[in-house]
Design a protein around this nucleic acid. Structure first.
Lengths: 129, 129
DNA sequence: TTATAGTTTTGCCAAATGGCAAATGTCAAT
DNA sequence: ATTGACATTTGCCATTTGGCAAAACTATAA
C-alpha cells in the first residue's frame, strides 16, 4: 500500500500549488466542485483523494490531466508523455520488424497469433506452479 | 457523472478483456491482488473500482497503464486503446489489440511469435500442394 | 444419478471517503 | 479590546469501497 508519507507529500504539493495560484480553499472548492473541508483534510494528509477528486482539482490547480495520478502513485511518471505519442502504438514497445510482418496478415490471423501466444503462456504458467 | 463510460460499460469492457485473456476471476485476483468477489461485482457494475483497483488490474488485463483511467472517465481518451479496437483501426494495418498484447512481451518473445507464424504458414502452404 | 472440483455470486462487515454545519483561527479596522 | 469578515479545521454521519467466508451455480467424472 501507499505509505502515509506519500499521502502527506501529495497534500503538501497540492497546498503549495494552491498557494502559488493564490487561491483559498473556498475558491478552489467552488472551482473544482469539492467541499473545502475535504480539500483541507487532503492537503494535510488526513484523507487520501479519490481519482474523482484528483480529476476535479487538476485543472483549477494548473496540473496536467494525468500529473496528479502520477503523483498519487496510480500512474508511473513516464506514461502519457508526448514523446512516445508519435509512435503509433503508445503504451507498448512493439518491435518494428514484428509490427511490419504481422501488419501484413489479416486481422483474423493477427488475433489467432495472439491466441496462440496466450495458450503458450498459460501452459508455461501451469508448469511453473 | 460521466457520460463517456459509466459504471456498467466499464465492467463489461473489463469482463470482455478478462475472458479474451482466458482468465478466471480467481486468476486475475491473484495476479492483481484484488479479491475475486470484488472483481466480480465490478464487472457486473455493482461496484465502481477505485483508482487503486484500476491500477492493479490494468497490467494483468493487458491495458496500458492509463487506459483504464480514461475509460473510467478520469482521463481524456487516447488513440489506439484496446477498448476501441473494434471501431478504430481505419488507417493502420496492425490491430491495436494485437499491438498492445504483443508490445508487452520482450522483443525476443515477439520475434519468436513471428517465427511460429512463419512455420505455420509454411505448413499450410505445403498442405495445399 | 451422485460426488467432486472449480467458478461465480451473495451476506455481512470494517475501513475509508467526502459533504454539511458548527467551531476555531486569523487579522484588519474601529 | 471588540467587532466583523474570511479562512481553516473539526465533529458527525451517509455512502461507498473492498475483503472474507459461505452459498449457489456449473460442469465433469464416477
Amino acid at each position: 500500500m501507499n505509505t502515509v508519507t506519500e499521502g502527506r507529500e501529495l497534500g503538501k504539493i497540492l497546498k503549495r500549488q494552491r498557494i502559488a495560484a493564490d487561491m483559498t480553499l473556498a475558491q478552489l472548492s467552488s472551482r473544482a466542485g469539492v467541499s473545502p473541508s475535504h480539500l483541507g483534510r487532503v492537503e494535510r494528509g488526513q484523507r487520501f483523494p479519490s481519482a474523482h477528486i484528483l480529476h476535479r482539482i487538476a485543472g483549477p490547480l494548473g496540473f496536467a490531466e494525468d500529473e496528479l495520478f502520477a503523483l498519487a502513485g496510480y500512474l508511473s511518471r513516464r506514461s502519457g508523455s508526448v514523446a512516445d505519442r508519435d509512435h503509433n502504438y503508445a503504451g507498448s514497445r512493439l518491435d518494428p520488424y514484428v509490427a511490419n510482418v504481422l501488419g501484413q496478415e489479416t486481422p483474423e490471423v493477427q488475433r489467432t497469433v495472439v491466441g496462440v501466444l496466450t495458450i503458450l503462456k498459460n501452459i508455461a504458467r501451469s508448469l511453473r506452479d
